[in-house]
Design a protein around this nucleic acid. Structure first.
Length: 384
DNA sequence: ATAGGTGGGCACAGCGAACA
DNA sequence: TGTTCGCTGTGCCCACCTAT
């Protein structure tokens, strides 16, 4: 991405690649400035905008006791933003906030960030922030940096400080991600040979392998999710199919759940038919006859793959990828794959498809081209 | 079998640079 | 100035390890 040039004398002003000067601030967004930096017109426009964003600072009340990061943490926890978080998200924020607040500000001092005033001058605070962020592995570092920004944001809202120094901590570069392993055919066969129809292992495997994606969904699917649907096939004949219909668990609390319809393929039908139909509830049950918890299912899947003699790394989520890859490589378009995977946005599906094995696609493209040229030849021959 | 802790991947809304 | 679209930030989820 093009780097923006900034001006030390004019905070919040930056020059775009096209040469335009803009004033950018979270409170007012982006405003274009007159082109000549230093001109009277520019100074007037700049001053007006600066007053808009700095006004709260001028009115800031003198604090009796300097608020600390611990106080900012309390303020954040009282905010509406915090109350809107899902419980797991709160757990994460608490963990990263603790990691930050309990860390010593410097190697030699005993003072922690919890006791440090939030308005500690930049020159003193910024190097400490950078060091503490850098002391963690990439992913955690990124999360701790987010926490620091959130704490500053809470403090700024309380008018305890003016600047969010968290924004000045360098971006943490994440290592390239290694997506969950797709299960090749021979691996699938090995698993199927070891885990026979009717077993929980085979049921969990089949649900994930043939379209009921995430572990949360696999654990929750019930016989009540089965429906019979009619559809018209390519020969205009009315057909009947069994489908599994469900709302995804992911983002359920914030209305982000997506409806997914999975057509039950013969391989999955075989597995479902082998199950005890006398009892209701979830398709997958523990030995005690209870539904699996999500974590237990992950743990159990690792046991089942070990039993099948598979090397580590073949997981439930890998089966979800396997399903997505299969339909995409089989020629399904982006929209179809998106619906089948239960993605809310096609962008996500596009990322998936970008990582697919290009060979099947290449062969399909070649076959399509061959078919097309044969048609052209036939047409020309007919014209003659 | 269950659950807590932790690192890391998935998913998506919205920001903002580039362009019309 | 309005629009487009790639990219980033971050909420949420999963895998894995460990303890019970």
């Amino acid at each position: 991405m093009a780097r923006k040039s900034r001006f030390a004398d004019y905070p919040h002003v930056l020059q775009l690649k096209n040469g335009k000067l803009v004033f950018r601030h979270p409170l007012i967004g982006q405003k274009t400035l007159p082109a000549d930096i230093g001109s009277e017109e520019f100074a007037d426009a700049y001053e007006k905008l600066r007053l808009l964003v700095d006004a709260p600072a001028a009115e800031a009340k003198p604090a009796i006791k300097k608020p600390t990061f611990a106080d900012a943490y309390v303020a954040w926890k009282k905010s509406d933003e915090w109350k809107a978080y899902e419980s797991k998200t709160i757990k994460g924020h608490v963990r990263h906030a603790k990691a930050f607040l309990e860390a010593p500000m410097t190697k030699t001092s005993k003072a922690t960030f919890a006791e440090a005033p939030v308005d500690t001058p930049e020159a003193e605070m910024l190097p400490c922030l950078r060091k503490t962020v850098a002391s963690h592995a990439a992913h955690k570092a990124k999360r701790v940096a987010v926490t620091i920004r959130k704490l500053y944001a809470a403090a700024i809202k309380e008018e305890w400080c003016l600047r969010n120094l968290g924004c000045d901590v360098e971006q943490v570069e994440l290592p390239p991600s290694s997506p969950e392993k797709v299960w090749p055919d021979d691996i699938c066969e090995r698993f199927e040979r070891r885990h026979q129809l009717g077993s929980s292992a085979r049921t969990a495997y089949a649900l994930a392998r043939y379209g009921v994606g995430r572990r949360g969904d696999v654990a929750k699917i019930e016989r009540d999710n089965l429906r019979t649907k009619r559809y018209i096939d390519e020969n205009d004949q009315i057909q009947v199919a069994t489908v599994i219909e469900f709302m995804t668990q992911k983002n359920q609390h914030n209305g982000g759940s997506v409806k997914v319809t999975v057509v039950v393929r013969p391989e999955l039908e075989m597995v479902l038919n082998a199950l005890d139909r006398s009892k209701g509830g979830t398709m997958l049950k523990t030995q005690a006859g209870k539904p699996f918890s999500q974590k237990s299912l992950s743990n159990q899947m690792a046991v089942w793959t070990r039993q099948a003699g598979l090397e580590p790394g073949y997981t439930l989520h890998g089966l979800r990828r396997t399903f997505g890859s299969e339909i995409a490589e089989g020629g399904a378009d982006l929209f179809t794959v998106q619906k089948a995977m239960g993605h809310r946005s096609p962008t996500t599906t596009a990322i998936y498809m970008d990582q697919l094995n290009e060979e099947p696609m290449a062969f399909r493209a070649a076959a399509a081209a061959k078919k097309r040229s044969a048609e052209v030849k036939r047409l020309r021959a007919a014209e003659k």
